[in-house]
Design a protein around this nucleic acid. Structure first.
Lengths: 141, 141
DNA sequence: CATATTCAGGAATTATGGTACCTTTATTCC
DNA sequence: GGAATAAAGGTACCATAATTCCTGAATATG
């Protein structure tokens, strides 16, 4: 398994691709983006198709075409990118999927919910502009 | 989508099933456990098959048989249960799955890694005994 | 106008997770 | 001791989601 967060490769591609577009500040073709972040071009294209439908990027066909961010990167949160790919992110839903835990109360005492909220806050707080700004050199997480 | 953490239904069944066994302190059949926590008996059986192979429960066949926890519930962390189902939980791995981020550094600045570690710490810290003890009435998370 | 480039959309494929069913083991009751 | 029953083990199947592939449409350029 890959990680503890439910971040699909699609979302990761969206984060990295959008981050790259934000840094470059110019239109880039799907081919260029995929090469730059070392992912499958087919998959990236599919991901950007969704981002385009969500209005987060504008796409242009034909030679010299490609994708460009439609808004100021400082206004685009990771959450919006996440939602464009995965649909609505629910938080605080019982892991069992039942509305009432068979135990009568949540056996985790609400702590998992707290941590999910923390992650959600992070997605809401961080913008595409932040992705290029931060340079504290964390390892790959 | 269900939640932000990569908790499959299988892991959730394992947590709840083991929690129940810990509370009861006695052998229970798969049928009983599945009924108590309102999940598919077929799936629960498969999950417990893995828990048995991992040595976390002892299984007994035949009438009156079932599953029982092999160790003191205070000694069994959620992490061990998690690993028995999902395999090794990696933390701090780049969301893209590459060993070196194409950006040269992690674009998330290590914060996602920090949050993953926090969740991992939680799994390491909480034992089956804790699941039944906590009673602060959180909502279903 | 022909051609090359680039994205759009849907079809086909693959992978994953969950389900159903049959087999084996053990107990109980006659 | 044998038959019936209760229970877990194992395997094969199915459903859904994720990924790739293929064809078509749009646009720029010579």
């Amino acid at each position: 398994m890959a990680g503890l967060f439910r971040i699909s490769e699609a979302v990761s591609i969206a984060f990295h691709g959008m981050g790259l577009l934000a840094v470059r500040g110019a239109r880039m073709s799907g081919h260029e983006i995929a090469n730059a972040i070392c992912v499958s071009e087919a998959h990236l294209l599919k991901v950007f198709q969704r981002l385009a439908r969500a209005g987060l990027v504008h796409s242009t066909r034909g030679p010299g075409g490609g994708f460009e961010i439609t808004e100021d990167p400082r206004a685009v949160t990771l959450f919006r990118v996440y939602e464009a790919i995965e649909g609505t992110a629910e938080c605080g839903v019982c892991l069992l999927g039942t509305t009432t835990c068979p135990f009568g109360r949540c056996i985790f005492g609400g702590e998992t919910e707290r941590m999910e909220k923390e992650f959600l806050d992070y997605l809401h707080r961080v913008t595409l502009a932040d992705l290029s700004a931060k340079d504290e050199g964390g390892t790959n997480a």
